[in-house]
Simulated assay, not measured.
Amino acid sequence: MVECYGDSAELADELLHEVMHGTKRATSSLANEYAHYGENEPKAGDHWVVCDGSGEPRIIQRVASVQRSSFFDVPANFAAAQGEGDLSLEYWRRVHREYWTRTQGEIGRDWSPEQTTLPGEELLLERDEICWPPEFADSRGE
């Protein structure tokens, strides 16, 4: 899989920087988006090429784990592992509510956190490791 983080070049660059130079080792997505786009959900052991905002490949990550969760059951330590903002669960909830409301609206769907309690609508909480390039690879590696 070849992907960028976020839904804009600016956000892709910002989040990639947090992966490469910060503490971002997790990401979250909506299960229904994979079905909508006809893509496979991520699973442990998958690799993905992460591109910058201009579409240039920058790193390769390996999916360490994936858990299903509702919006309301995301653990604080997972929110912190996403490496964004002040690392708090409150920040995570605010920006992800805004993000999924916007991105689901773009595909013609209304979205609310309550939907994530329904089968097929859950969040996918993914923990990742950098595999390449070596200077950014996580010490725990593959």
Rank of each mutant, 00 (worst) to 15 (best):
P113D: 07
R62M: 10
E90S: 14
D7A: 11
A35W: 14
L30M: 06
D110P: 04
A137L: 09
A44T: 04
G141L: 05
G83E: 08
L11T: 03
W100L: 01
G105Y: 12
A31C: 08
A12K: 03
A9H: 06
H36D: 02
F72L: 01
M1V: 10
C131E: 13
R68G: 05
F72I: 00
H36F: 14
G120N: 11
T116E: 10
T103C: 07
F71K: 07
R97S: 09
V63L: 10
R58M: 09
N40S: 15
T23R: 13
I59P: 01
S88E: 11
F78W: 02
D128T: 12
R25A: 07
E56M: 13
D7E: 10
A76T: 09
E3A: 12
F136P: 00
H36A: 04
R127Y: 05
L125F: 11
L125P: 06
Y5Q: 05
F71L: 05
A76E: 15
C4V: 02
V2W: 03
G53D: 11
H21F: 15
E142W: 15
G105P: 00
V95G: 14
Y91P: 01
P57W: 15
Q115I: 00
L118N: 10
H47W: 06
A137C: 12
S112P: 08
A35T: 15
Y91E: 08
R62F: 04
L124Y: 09
V49C: 13
S54Q: 14
F136K: 05
L30T: 00
P75W: 08
G6Q: 05
Q115N: 02
A35E: 15
R94L: 06
K43V: 13
G108C: 09
A9C: 04
I130G: 03
D86A: 13
L16T: 01
D138N: 15
S28D: 12
V49H: 09
H36K: 03
A9T: 04
F78G: 04
F71C: 08
L89V: 05
Q67L: 09
D138Q: 08
L89I: 12
T103E: 13
R140A: 10
V95A: 12
P134V: 02
E126D: 08
P42F: 08
Y5E: 10
L89W: 08
A35K: 15
H21G: 00
Q82H: 11
R109F: 11
A44S: 10
A76D: 15
P119L: 05
V66W: 14
H96L: 03
F72V: 00
E84N: 07
A80W: 07
F71E: 09
R94P: 00
A35I: 13
V50P: 06
W132L: 14
G85I: 13
E33M: 15
L89H: 10
D128F: 12
S112V: 03
R97N: 11
G38P: 10
G83P: 02
V66G: 13
D128W: 10
C131D: 04
S88Q: 09
Q82P: 00
V74W: 06
R97P: 00
V49Q: 14
H21M: 13
L124H: 11
G6N: 02
T116F: 05
N32T: 08
Q115K: 12
E84W: 07
S112Y: 02
A31K: 10
T116I: 05
R127S: 09
D110E: 14
K24M: 07
C4H: 04
P75R: 07
L118A: 11
E135T: 03
T116D: 09
